[in-house]
Design a protein around this nucleic acid. Structure first.
Lengths: 121, 121
DNA sequence: CGGTATCCTATATGATACTG
DNA sequence: CAGTATCATATAGGATACCG
């Protein structure tokens, strides 16, 4: 998010902060878990590249959507959780998820497949 | 949205349908207007490229989110409106917009600027 | 375990010109 | 007015290897 950018709508601003291919998903999974480690998160979003996941997390941290806590242990432990405005995003993303379910039921677009063990989120 | 893709979460599915840089914005503006012509829409999303706008609209039409109505007039008139699952997206996007306003107030990220005449959406 | 470094690619996006 | 065609490019995203 460039600070001097000109916005034409609030949704535009929101998308600038949490838009993109992965951020909503990451936020949703952190929210669902409460607290989550890097490795768990990676397992919940299997298709994401490590470098990309790492970068997205940093950006979300910079935007004050999430908090990153490093524990000085061996092996290392790093935990992510939502903070403030990150938390208020959860219900919205839940709605979006429900919308997806309904869309799938209604239009049944080519038999949408879900990995069984992940389906319960 | 590839029909044989494997999803790990409903949000993932939703994002596949209405995600991206422009689609949520387009849907939001069509929803706000009820019915809107191509040119008006372009004015509401000034930064979008015509080719891109055109393509996004076709994709949303294919996904049965919007409806495209062509009137056989000169000069040509084409109107877009939300249908079915497109309509149920409106409250969610409104929430997202409100979230952006609150984020802006709370963190006041480098004085976010809005074009005055657009601010009222 | 939780990353980063390096290098690479695709796809989305964009500028411009043109048309029924 | 509502686009499409053509061409160009940037940036997000990815593969792989390696490290404290």
């Amino acid at each position: 998010m460039a600070d001097n950018k000109l916005y034409y709508c609030n949704v535009e601003l929101s998308l600038d902060i949490i838009g993109g291919k992965w951020k909503p998903l990451i936020i949703h999974h952190i929210g669902g878990a409460g607290v989550i480690r890097y490795g768990e998160l990676k397992r919940k979003v299997p298709n994401i590249n490590e470098r990309v996941l790492s970068r997205q997390l940093r950006e979300l941290e910079e935007s004050k959507i999430i908090q990153r806590t490093v524990y000085d242990e061996v092996p290392p432990r790093v935990e992510y959780s939502l903070i403030e405005m990150g938390k208020t995003l959860v219900p919205i993303l839940n709605e979006l998820g429900l919308w997806g379910i309904e869309y799938n039921q209604k239009y049944n677009h080519g038999e949408i497949h879900f990995e069984d063990e992940y389906n319960n989120l």
